[in-house]
């Protein structure tokens, strides 16, 4: 990993889906060790930004760097540093959840013995050990959310990207995830979180960015962005929502 204090950097990133402009000259930086909340209404460009950052989408112009590595040119190095907890449950239906984690670790260059040890530790941490040999279809929605997190963390990434990780979770699971994310951040992981839950963002994050219609409309540390208002009030103000 390059010795960069900037974990994520986007410079004038533009992305079109046919004629629809999803990102319009998006530029921002996330510092190493930050807990960054990336907020916006549905369709604002949050998931598109994540997809461009992780290489799941091609952007038309601009530059994306992950710890100094260009996400397009040095994609192998940049992907090694990122763990993505996606919004949808996209698991291989043929594998048990333990196999799924071991293979995922393997893709990141981790040997099977170590991969199995990490998988067991994560399954225990997220209370999934009993389901170790089940396929993901046998899991409840909350368990699948936890499995998404396990998969994102299996290679111990420097940056954890979470796309609405607590959507649809019950209170107990939400608090479990919040505690774990806070702990990971304390240990030095950079966390990039998108959420519609203002309480979650306000409670966990140090820096906040708000995107609307593909443009960054507000960004800064939590104190600067909030200015003694609630996050919900600021969000409604800058997105023009009622």
């Amino acid at each position: 990993m390059r010795n960069s204090e900037i974990a994520i950097s986007l410079l004038k990133v533009t992305k079109f889906y046919n004629k629809l402009q999803a990102l319009d000259n998006v530029s921002f930086e996330v510092k190493r060790g930050d807990f960054f909340a990336f907020l916006g209404p549905n369709g604002a460009g949050k998931t598109t930004t994540i997809n461009c950052l992780t290489g799941l989408s091609n952007h038309q112009s601009g530059e994306i760097k992950v710890f100094g590595y260009d996400a397009t040119r040095d994609y192998v190095q940049s992907r090694r540093l990122i763990g993505l907890c996606a919004q949808e449950f996209n698991f291989d239906p043929f594998l048990t959840i333990h196999q799924l984690l071991v293979y995922q670790a393997g893709y990141f260059g981790i040997l099977p013995m170590e991969a199995s040890r990490r998988a067991d530790a994560l399954l225990a941490r997220f209370q999934l050990t009993e389901k170790r040999n089940c396929k993901h279809r046998a899991l409840s929605g909350g368990m699948k959310k936890r499995l998404l997190l396990c998969r994102a963390l299996i290679h111990d990434p420097e940056i954890l990207i979470l796309d609405e990780p607590t959507a649809g979770c019950d209170l107990e699971l939400k608090f479990l995830i919040w505690d774990y994310l806070a702990q990971l951040n304390k240990e030095g992981k950079t966390i990039f979180l998108t959420t519609h839950n203002m309480e979650e963002a306000e409670k966990l994050c140090k820096t906040i960015g708000i995107i609307n219609h593909g443009k960054i409309v507000r960004i800064g540390d939590k104190k600067t962005v909030l200015q003694d208002k609630s996050l919900e009030a600021v969000f409604l103000e800058v997105t023009g929502a009622e």
Binding site: T54, G55, L56, V76, Q77, R79, R80, I82, L84, A86, E88, N90, F91, D92, P93, Y103, Q104, Y107, F108, G109, R151
Partner: peptide, 18 residues
């Protein structure tokens, strides 16, 4: 095709593989 259909091809696309 099944990996595309279920979208678990992302597991491979996100990995540090050329």
């Amino acid at each position: 095709f099944i990996a595309r259909w279920h979208n678990h091809i992302q597991e491979v696309l996100l990995a540090p593989l050329s």
